[in-house]
C-alpha cells in the first residue's frame, strides 16, 4: 500500500477530469480517487459535484451509500473476511472470535489490521476465504489468520510457511 499519495487538490482534479466525460461517471471517479489517496477526502465532494453538475448532497449520497468508499485514511493491512453462508458452514464466525480474543482485531475497526466483513468472494468451495490487500486466500484457519494479522506475507501463508 506504499503507492498511496497524500490528499492533493490538483491531483484530485486531474483524476476527476480524466473520467468526468464517461456516462454515469460518479462511481469510476470515486473509485479512482480512493485508489489514488486510499480514501475520499471531504474536499473531493465539491470537486466531483462541480465536474458532474450534481449537488454536493447528491455526491455525498452516493459516497455514503456504498460500503467500499472510505472517508478517512487507514493505512493498516486490509483483510476482507467472507462471512456469508458458504463460509459460515466452514466456521468463519469462529475466526472472527479468534481475531477478537487473540489479537484484539474486530470487524468494527479495532486492532492492528483493518478487518472488514464481506459477503462472498466467490471462493465458496474453499472457505473460509478472505482478500488480503486484494490477494485471495482460501482455506483459512486460526493459524493462517493469526499469521496474516501478524503481518506474514500472503505468499508465505499460502505456501504453508506461516509457522
Amino acid at each position: 500500500m506504499s503507492d498511496i499519495a497524500p490528499w492533493n487538490h490538483t491531483v484530485a482534479q486531474a483524476v476527476i477530469d480524466a473520467l468526468k466525460d464517461r456516462e454515469g461517471a460518479a462511481l469510476p471517479i470515486l473509485h479512482a480517487l480512493q485508489e489514488c489517496f486510499g480514501y475520499i477526502d471531504e474536499a473531493a465532494v465539491p470537486l466531483v459535484a462541480e465536474a458532474l453538475n450534481l449537488s454536493r448532497a447528491e455526491v455525498h449520497g452516493v459516497l455514503s451509500f456504498y460500503h467500499d468508499f472510505r472517508r478517512t485514511p487507514d493505512p493498516r493491512r486490509r483483510i476482507q473476511l467472507c462471512r456469508a453462508e458458504a463460509c459460515q458452514s466452514l466456521g468463519c464466525e469462529t475466526l472472527v472470535q479468534h481475531a477478537a480474543v487473540h489479537h484484539g482485531v474486530t470487524p468494527q475497526g479495532r486492532g492492528s489490521v483493518r478487518l472488514e466483513t464481506v459477503y462472498c468472494l466467490g471462493l465458496c468451495a474453499q472457505g473460509p476465504a478472505a482478500l488480503v490487500d486484494g490477494a485471495p486466500v482460501a482455506r483459512l484457519d486460526a493459524g493462517r489468520l493469526s499469521a496474516l494479522i501478524n503481518g506474514a506475507p500472503v505468499e508465505a501463508v499460502l505456501a504453508g510457511e506461516e509457522a
Binding site: 466467490g122 474453499q126 485471495p136 482460501a138 505468499e155 499460502l158
Partner: peptide, 11 residues
C-alpha cells in the same frame, strides 16, 4: 483463476 491463486498458484 482466483480459486487457484487463493491456494498459491502463482508461487
Amino acid at each position: 483463476d482466483a480459486s487457484a491463486l487463493a491456494m498459491g498458484a502463482d508461487a
